[in-house]
């Protein structure tokens, strides 16, 4: 019985180990490495964004693409248009599906010079690939979609949540390995959550290796307490907000009354 159990255990563990090895080799085989220096960003009262440096090593002679994203979500945005032919106002809402809230992309060279369109779409690299990945509703045709996608990118870039650069990754050769480094601004507009930092090694317009790290952003201390209270104890939060406002109003009134008596 003990022997049977051993075989049973072996038959379960061997495929698991092989699968794990295969998965592992898919990500970091040949030693593409990645490390984000700041993998746990804490939001306190004095938080005003941060910086995240991404570094690692790859085989020499490959180009690199670093992508920082949040998981896909959806956004509902107000759409401005002309009413009565000449007045700009909100004319409707647009739903953007499968959109990452944060999308920051950096590459050693211009994307179109180092990556094929198919590969870019497969790994959702670059705004053109993102355009095909995102669904916008309601739009009548592709050109309308393209127009609103362009507006969406402008909207996200204006709040620093989307960014793209080429040639800003520093690359050096050391002991036969290619080391890379980039320092990126982490926008304070990025809400708490989990973010993925992915590096793709690219050769002959194809992604040949991928490695990934995570950045976790969380509220701490009183910021967390207040945010949770606003959400979970809304009535108490509302009453406290009103009472403090009334008390502050009276308080300042009393101070001025004293000041005015002189």
């Amino acid at each position: 019985m003990n022997f049977k159990f051993q075989i049973f255990k072996f038959s379960i563990t061997l495929p698991s180990i092989l699968t794990a090895l295969m998965l592992f080799s898919g990500n970091t085989f040949a030693g593409l490495t990645i490390k984000a220096n700041h993998d746990n960003i804490k939001i306190d009262f004095f938080y005003h964004g941060s910086t995240v440096s991404v570094k690692g090593a790859s085989d020499p002679g490959v180009d690199l693409i670093i992508k920082i994203t949040s998981p896909d979500g959806h956004e509902v945005l107000k759409q401005k248009g002309k009413a009565a032919g000449f007045l700009w106002m909100n004319t409707g809402t647009l739903n953007f599906e499968h959109t990452p809230n944060l999308y920051s992309l950096h590459s050693t060279k211009k994307l179109e010079d180092i990556l094929s369109r198919e590969e870019a779409e497969k790994y959702i690299i670059g705004y053109s690939a993102l355009n095909r990945h995102i669904e916008i509703k309601p739009v009548n045709n592709e050109s309308e979609k393209a127009t609103w996608f362009k507006e969406f990118i402008r909207f996200k870039e204006s709040s620093k949540l989307y960014a793209a650069s080429a040639g800003k990754i520093a690359v050096t050769l050391k002991d036969g390995r290619q080391e890379y480094y980039i320092l990126t601004d982490w926008p304070y507009q990025a809400p708490p959550g989990d973010y993925f930092v992915t590096v793709h090694a690219v050769k002959d317009k194809k992604v040949i290796e991928t490695a990934e790290a995570n950045v976790h952003v969380e509220q701490v201390g009183s910021v967390k307490l207040l945010a949770q209270m606003a959400e979970n104890s809304a009535a108490t939060y509302g009453i406290i907000s009103i009472l403090i406002a009334v008390a502050a109003g009276f308080g300042v009134g009393l101070i001025f009354k004293k000041g005015g008596a002189h």
């Binding site: 809304a234 009535a235 509302g238 907000s241 403090i244 406002a245 502050a248 300042v252």
Partner: peptide
């Protein structure tokens, strides 16, 4: 309005309100 907004929409930012009222209560006087 403050109560209804806090209760139904959860969008009263207490810290922002304090910063604003710090100025506005003095301004009103």
């Amino acid at each position: 309005v403050t109560f209804l907004q806090a209760y139904t929409n959860h969008n009263v930012d207490f810290i922002l309100a304090i910063l604003l009222l710090f100025g506005s209560t003095i301004g009103a006087q």
